[in-house]
Design a binder for these strands. Structure first.
Length: 152
DNA sequence: GCCAACGTTGGC
DNA sequence: GCCAACGTTGGC
């Protein structure tokens, strides 16, 4: 059982967008960073839980919790020329990019903002808060997970 | 919109 | 394998 943080731009795909889907489940496509790819392909397991984080918006922060309901499989948008995530170097028999399926679990009772997270010494080692970290998927330790949710 | 901090690309 | 140029991320 691992914990994760998934970034999404709410203008593109918000926690409410996920919640509104018929099965409240969607594939997490468009990961085009090798480190993030390795996390989901090698380490992410069925039933893992993840913080849903809104980035690049007026109030960046943790807004909810989702669950991994399907482990990594090839990201088909990489071989779709019409997709913004199309990668001409991807090949079907040796897929370069992967995605997982995530299911909405719940929204937090309030947004735990980036600003707030930065104020706690317990979280200074958190990947999200390290300087210049732009990974869209990162692991969260059990300690960090519990601490963040205790702020709710 | 700015820009720092990255990651990737490609010439050499 | 080096590294300059370029593209992207994401807070502000």
């Amino acid at each position: 059982m691992n914990y994760w943080l998934l970034k999404s731009e709410p203008n593109t795909f918000s926690i409410d967008d996920l919640k509104k889907l018929p099965r409240q489940t969607d594939h997490w496509d468009g990961i085009r960073n090798y480190q993030a790819r390795n996390f989901i392909r090698d380490d992410m397991q069925l039933n893992d839980l993840a913080l849903f984080y809104h980035s690049n918006c007026t109030q960046p922060g943790v807004v909810g919790i989702v669950q991994i309901v399907r482990e990594a499989y090839p990201d088909y948008t990489a071989s779709d020329p019409r997709s913004p995530y199309f990668d001409p170097k991807n090949s079907a028999d040796n897929p370069r990019w992967y995605m997982v399926d995530v299911k909405f679990k719940r929204k937090l009772s309030r947004i735990i903002t980036l600003k707030e997270l930065k104020q706690h010494s317990e979280l200074v080692t958190m990947s999200l808060l390290k300087r210049g970290n732009r990974l869209s998927i990162m692991p969260v330790t059990t300690k960090e997970w519990r601490f963040i949710l205790s702020l709710e």
